[in-house]
């Protein structure tokens, strides 16, 4: 019932849309060891790039010239040249890199190494390792504050968000959150840090100055048992008004009011939804569905799923080309 209704909506909203500017989204396929390139004009996969073993975390460099992808089972980060769409180099991370983030200038890359309880600091221009920071057990989520002063790392078995001073590379605070924190995202104005807890089933809202949890977002979906609701990826609009939270095996994206933190809607997407990326003008949000091997396209204003694109096996991460 719900499916057929969705198809109606899809047809209606497709007819209403004017052609958008074309962007390119790069999707890491964890199982097939490839990266799919999606054209957001035709909504088709225009290229599939072979990469190393178990690609997950994926991000464009700030200048848009390269895509970085963590290939965990090869213990490195590969560099894809977007002009030739081929792997041209690799960066020296620690063992089993998963997620990473870069500073505003695009000079420094911070990598979470799941196997080693460390965050590796890499000079992106020289492509050399600058050092390591000791954190908790199984580091995963990475975020950098809008002012660039604080790096956040979440550790999955320690259940903390570590606040790291980017100048001294020392931990300045640790905030305990619910079980298995996987992803961290700042509001653009720096007023809040959101951390998703996959096993805990919540998103903690943290005051980045006081280092306290000021609230928790919880999810309830009729007919779904609590254990199936496992928040992972988070996407927030630049104005901070709307957030989208991927709920993993619940097969849904929660739409959350950025100010009140109330869940306003659940969008049915593919199976085991992981991560997401906005098109630069925030007209669309693309989310990866791990088990159904596809990417759902959400119309951000309408808050509706308008399209599904088949990609490789077990799509995990996604990044959008800067405008």
């Amino acid at each position: 019932m719900q499916r057929s209704y969705m198809i109606y909506v899809m047809a209606a909203s497709l007819a209403a849309t004017t052609p958008a500017a074309a962007f390119k989204a790069y999707v890491s396929n964890e199982k097939s060891n490839t990266v799919s390139v999606i054209d957001t004009d035709s909504w088709t996969v225009i290229k599939t790039i072979k990469v190393g073993q178990r690609p997950r975390g994926i991000e464009f460099t700030r200048d848009g010239k390269f895509v970085l992808v963590a290939v965990g089972d090869d213990d490195k980060i590969e560099v894809i040249d977007t002009a030739t769409q081929q792997v041209v180099d690799s960066l020296p991370s620690g063992p089993d890199p998963e997620l990473f983030t870069q500073d505003a200038a695009g000079n420094i890359l911070y990598v979470a190494n799941e196997n080693d309880n460390t965050v590796t600091v890499i000079d992106l221009q020289k492509r050399v390792r600058l050092g390591d920071i000791q954190v908790g057990v199984e580091p995963e989520g990475m975020a950098i504050s809008p002012d660039g002063k604080i790096l956040i790392n979440t550790s999955e078995t320690t259940n903390m968000a570590h606040f790291i001073d980017t100048a001294t590379r020392q931990i300045v605070a640790n905030v305990l959150v619910d079980s298995r924190p996987r992803f961290a995202e700042f509001k653009r104005d720096g007023s809040e840090l959101w951390v998703s807890s996959e096993i805990g089933g919540t998103v903690s809202v943290i005051d980045p100055v006081k280092h306290t949890v000021t609230g928790k977002i919880t999810f309830e979906i009729p007919g779904l048992r609590r254990e199936a609701i496992q928040p992972v990826g988070i996407g927030m609009t630049k104005d901070g008004k709307t957030a989208f939270i991927a709920l993993g095996p619940a097969n849904r994206i929660a739409v959350v009011d950025g100010a009140s933190h109330a869940v306003t809607k659940y969008l049915l997407v593919g199976q085991r939804v992981w991560h997401m990326a906005f098109t630069p003008e925030e007209k669309y949000l693309l989310v990866t569905n791990g088990v159904s091997n596809d990417v759902s396209v959400i119309d951000v204003a309408a808050q509706k799923v308008i399209k599904t694109i088949q990609v490789g096996e077990l799509p995990w991460g996604i990044t959008m080309a800067p405008p």
């Binding site: 605070a173 305990l176 928790k216 919880t218």
Partner: peptide
Amino acid sequence: MIRWLVAAIGLSVVATPVF
């Protein structure tokens, strides 16, 4: 269905000083 929990209880607001 929609719930917003203010974490007022002490143990969920543990912020830990490093030293």
